[in-house]
Amino acid sequence: MMNHPVEDPKKSTNLVIVPRLGDRYYLKSVLTNVFGPRSIPYIRENIMANGQVFGGPCDEYEQVRTGLKVFDLADIETACPGEKSGSRLSQIPDESVIRLGYLFRTCDALVRDKSILNFAVKKAGQLSKNPTAENYFNIVRLFDVTADITNKDSEVFEKISSQDSYKKLPSEKQWQLLFGLTCKSTDWQVL
């Protein structure tokens, strides 16, 4: 072995801090619990399939090949079909604009699906009635059961609900907006 590059003697810095965000498995668990089993296809398409963005390494030995391009997976979401780099994904994913983009897309798709929205709303109030501040707080606590409800949350709801454009919306659209807003928040993703 003759190749012996000189190492860069430059030492790196002392501390690197990244937000302790949940990975794709955590996001899936939260969103599935909030929005119900019908949400799974959306989550698979936008979040689980984008491991590079959301983090969460897979286990390559859960992948069992029984023939050429024939897979038998112990767990379709934690094995790594077709992605060799999947086992290398970080458990502490980086925040990124792309991550936000995929999350926004997921949340929009979930709240636009009436049956999915209905499933979620039942846990926080009634679809036929306009959401109250307490309903909004319920939504926040649905995503994170231990979330502190602060004056800021009251102010957020106050600001939204005082808008004329919001007031004109039918109750379903108001629920849609509040669920969408909370779903897109980073707060519940921080562990």
Partner: peptide
């Protein structure tokens, strides 16, 4: 929990922030 959105945004925009 204290709202962390702004904090994390600052952190992530500066990637690898060093606490000073």
């Amino acid at each position: 929990m204290k709202k962390l959105r702004l904090f994390w945004f600052v952190i992530f925009m500066t990637f690898g922030t060093h606490a000073k």
